[in-house]
Simulated scan of single mutants.
Amino acid sequence: MPRTGERGGPLTRARIAEVAARLFLERGFDAVTVAEVAREAGVSSVTVFKHFPRKEDLFLDRTAEAAELLRSAVRDRAAGVDVVASLRERTLGLLDARDPLGGLDERSTPFFATVAGSPTLIARAREIAAELQETLADELERDAGFTGDAALFAAFFIAGYSTILVGTARRLVAGEPRSELLDAHRARFERLFAALHHGLASTAC
């Protein structure tokens, strides 16, 4: 039988994710079991897996959000706005809002340190990047206003984004203050979009 008060829904999912993140940050991802997360969250292991099919997704839990941002950047851009400009606007918006997907919110240092300490999380992060690349390419293929090589463009963007995040993560884990990395982090993104614009100008309509 389910434990008292156990039920599905966004609140349960959020509680599980919060408990899991705290335990992983405190003890390391590989040292914590799903059963421990479930017990601490007051739910069953079955409920945990209902919301998070893989243990890694308890920590890397923003894949769906990232995928929807990519789709929206293509699908919902205003008339006359190319894909590069739309992606730039959304990316810089993440940075300005200190959103975790931008790579420099206040929890970034412990988050990146935890990922770096787990080969399992590193492997899953690479899989997620490949999934997001496919998501963007598929959306571009369906977009009538984009006439270039969707797969190539998506590969460049996701690889560039990942490279910037990894570079900043290494500096944070090495002990550099987050406040001192903000400008450099943003400047690298600007260079990425400049390269996409100038290097793929004819394909980013």
Results as ranks from 00 to 15, higher is better:
70 L>V: 10
75 R>M: 06
75 R>L: 04
79 A>N: 14
80 G>P: 06
82 D>P: 14
83 V>I: 08
84 V>T: 08
84 V>G: 02
87 L>R: 11
88 R>C: 00
91 T>Y: 08
94 L>G: 07
97 A>D: 12
98 R>E: 04
100 P>Q: 00
102 G>K: 00
104 L>G: 05
108 S>F: 02
108 S>T: 11
115 V>I: 13
119 P>F: 04
120 T>C: 14
123 A>V: 11
124 R>I: 08
125 A>C: 04
125 A>Q: 02
126 R>P: 00
127 E>Y: 00
129 A>V: 10
129 A>L: 14
131 E>T: 13
131 E>Y: 15
136 L>Y: 09
136 L>A: 10
141 E>Y: 08
142 R>A: 14
142 R>V: 07
143 D>N: 13
146 F>T: 08
148 G>Y: 02
148 G>P: 00
148 G>I: 05
149 D>K: 10
151 A>R: 11
151 A>Q: 13
153 F>D: 01
156 F>M: 15
160 G>T: 00
161 Y>A: 03
162 S>N: 04
165 L>Q: 06
166 V>S: 05
169 A>K: 05
169 A>S: 09
170 R>P: 01
171 R>W: 15
172 L>P: 01
179 S>W: 02
181 L>Q: 13
186 R>N: 03
188 R>F: 01
188 R>Q: 07
196 L>H: 15
200 L>I: 06
203 T>D: 15
